[in-house]
Design a protein around this nucleic acid. Structure first.
Length: 330
DNA sequence: CGACTTTGACCGGCGC
DNA sequence: GCGCCGGTCAAAGTCG
């Protein structure tokens, strides 16, 4: 009884238990009829008091619940505001990134710094970036500023034709796997803890076609562990293999809406958070209209959305409840 | 039994 | 030249 009440159901349950306990207090040797009488006469008043206390408690809890909900929504609004501000700050620091990229003598250090910075930009500012500049839609291969800072550094020695793209995926906090579902079949070949991030980085190779040289690195963001950062290197030389992917990547993986990289810009970062409704995602989609217009993308989008919904136990239970409710009504 | 994951060892590049 | 670091390899373990 000393414990706090959490949900209405538990209160009902506890109330019943309480009544049971009263019943149990009755002497066993008393005849049945007398037992009922015993309860009714001696404990009726105390049960009523108890019930009214619980009712008051319930009201208090409802009030507290309401307050907590309001606090939560206020915090969420603050979070969104901070995100947009951080995006502005990140765009201001992009000039510094470019300067660092132009001095490869400090390659490794610069790379680390830039990687950290690009995380900041991508995690919170991707939507702003996609909105406010035309880098992604701009089909200009030589636009150094449009590529990520990490890539601008590597470009100095890497094959410039190697495409590098990043996808940020928000996952459930409880989800510790490093699986990003993107419609392809991946084989993990290594995992390493890097210096700049306590979370391990997983290395994947495309296992669908042995000749496919695409590699994928997946690591949790150091700043927001709920965000998975998937870095793709190279290009698939085979069609998407979404149906066989379920075997390689079990159901627990995060499932982003895939925004494929194109030759337009060497590096492109897109974050689509399917775990919460966000009107700006529609805007991101708008920014990638050309890609989205393709039937392949639309098909994949539908598949991803369907699989996201069917994997969500909350959705399935709500669906089941809705269906059973309808059946009961009929 | 085959495909996949895990994980310690190894290798090469880079900075000092 | 040495040590650090990221990336890769490969044997052992796991799973369906």
């Amino acid at each position: 009884m000393g414990s706090s009440w959490i949900v209405d159901a538990s209160q009902t349950f506890n109330l019943d238990l309480n009544l049971d306990s009263f019943r149990l207090q009755a002497p066993k040797d008393v005849p049945r009829g007398a037992q009922i009488n015993f309860m009714g006469v001696e404990n009726k008043a105390s049960v009523k008091d108890e019930a009214s206390d619980l009712k008051a408690e319930l009201e208090r809890m409802k009030e507290e619940n309401k307050r907590l909900t309001e606090t939560l929504s206020a915090m969420y609004e603050n979070y969104i505001t901070l995100q947009s501000r951080l995006g502005d700050v990140a765009s201001m620091t992009s000039e510094k990134d470019t300067m660092l990229a132009l001095h490869p003598s400090r390659k490794r250090k610069a790379e680390n710094n830039q990687e950290a910075k690009s995380d900041v930009i991508d995690i919170d500012g991707s939507i702003n970036c996609n909105f406010n500049n035309n880098n992604i839609n701009n089909n200009n291969n030589n636009n150094v500023e449009s590529s990520s800072s990490e890539d601008s550094c590597k470009k100095l020695k890497e094959d410039p034709k190697t495409k590098v793209s990043r996808v940020h995926v928000r996952t459930e906090p409880s989800d510790t796997s490093l699986v990003v579902k993107d419609g392809y079949q991946w084989r993990k070949y290594g995992q390493k803890v890097t210096r700049d991030n306590p979370c391990p980085r997983a290395y994947f190779r495309c296992s669908y076609a042995p000749a496919c040289s695409v590699k994928k690195k997946v690591q949790r963001s150091a700043e927001d562990p709920s965000v998975l950062v998937a870095t793709y290197e190279g290009e698939h030389n085979h069609p998407n293999c979404a149906k066989s992917e379920t075997r390689a990547a079990p159901s627990k993986g995060a499932s982003p809406v895939l925004i494929s990289s194109s030759s337009a810009s060497p590096t492109k970062t897109v974050k689509l958070d399917l775990t919460r409704p966000n009107s700006s995602q529609v805007a991101v989609v708008g920014a990638h209209r050309r890609e989205i217009d393709s039937p392949e993308f639309q098909k994949h989008l539908v598949e991803q959305m369907a699989s996201s919904l069917t994997r969500d136990p909350g959705f399935t239970s709500a669906l089941a409840a809705a269906i059973s409710g309808r059946i009961m009504r009929y």
